[in-house]
Design a protein around this nucleic acid. Structure first.
Lengths: 143, 143
DNA sequence: CTCATTGCAAACTCTTTGCAATAGC
DNA sequence: GCTATTGCAAAGAGTTTGCAATGAG
């Protein structure tokens, strides 16, 4: 997988640096959809001198290479996902965690929209909001 | 409609001010899904002394009264919609305009997600991205 | 008359940019 | 060695907050 990133970077004329590999690896290894700061904090122990700016600059390149997609779940900051397939996301209103939603077929819905609008469709993002199992329990316990 | 806002504000113990009415009216009168700054600019001629801070504070209250919903179309700023029914939105990648998508039935899709996830669903936002008719023509003309 | 609200400015958060030092190739 | 990249600090954008003056009830 890192080989792949290395090749992709080189092919596009980008240099391969340990920072870039680390940032992509961190993203590819998690399902938590971290923000730039979360990635920065996670890499802090291993790369103590790395700056937030480098995280942002690298994400910019990864976007260009189609290695990450950007999520806008309604927070102040963006979140990033190394899984670039088109799948819906759900955010817990209690703890703020963001999960993937697999196993849902949106093609019928997209087809409907496509036939309804005079836009030419290029992509879509589906966000759901609710309570994750853990927060449901906590809420129940309080009341 | 303004009567309604007036009543709603009073009922919740908020004072009714010309600024608040103007901001809500501006939102209710447009389908452009303006950002706070767009609202501010639009009201500038009529309320030259009104500040951006007032726009933000008022939107906060309107959210509380369920008179507006917040959109996150992937820009740096939030956009607001006085139509609080649950409908998808589409953003033009060319000019940045945001339109409503009516006449699509998402209930089947939502039901699918609901049965697939162990979250309790509270809401959702569907964003589509593409090219509006006007931008399609311009792109065609250029190439 | 009282207290919420306004409008200004300053603060804050997230992200981007400029630039000298550094490190890929 | 050349040039892209890093890391720092400073700048920018969007939003929020503090506070004295104002205005709604």
């Amino acid at each position: 997988m890192d080989i792949c990133v290395t090749t992709l970077l080189r092919d596009k004329g980008f240099k391969v640096t340990p920072q870039r590999l680390a940032i992509y690896s961190a993203l590819a290894a998690t399902k938590a959809h971290p923000s730039a700061e979360m990635i920065y904090n996670e890499l802090q122990p291993v790369y103590p001198t790395m700056s937030l700016a480098t995280v942002y600059k690298t994400i910019e390149i990864l976007k260009e290479l189609n290695l990450v997609q950007v999520l806008n779940v309604g927070e102040d900051s963006f979140r990033y996902d190394a899984d670039t397939t088109n799948h819906p996301h759900i955010r817990c209103m209690g703890c703020g965690r963001v999960d993937d939603l697999y196993g849902v077929d949106s093609s019928e819905f997209i087809k409907q929209v496509s036939s309804q609008t005079d836009y030419t469709l290029q992509g879509q993002q589906f966000y759901f909001y609710g309570m994750c199992p853990r927060c449901q329990k906590q809420t129940a316990a309080v009341s």
